[in-house]
């Protein structure tokens, strides 16, 4: 599963880790994150993420 980078602050969403602090289980793909999920670091919305090259 692809990692995604926040274009605002540089945080990397790694599906293998998920975002447990915000109720996202490890193994959740970026696509399957809820639409209202935001960057845990800077609060940017999903559309501000890009797939990691």
């Amino acid at each position: 599963m692809a990692k995604y980078v926040c274009t605002v602050c540089g945080y990397v969403y790694d599906p293998a880790q998920g975002d447990p602090d915000n109720g996202i289980d490890p193994g959740t793909s970026f696509e399957n994150l809820p639409a209202d999920w935001v960057c845990p670091l800077c609060g940017a919305s999903k559309d501000e993420f890009e797939q990691e090259k």
């Binding site: 605002v8 602050c9 670091l41 800077c42 609060g43 940017a44």
Partner: peptide, 9 residues
Amino acid sequence: LETRMLHWP
């Protein structure tokens, strides 16, 4: 008013 990344988280 939170202003995340203006200019730190």
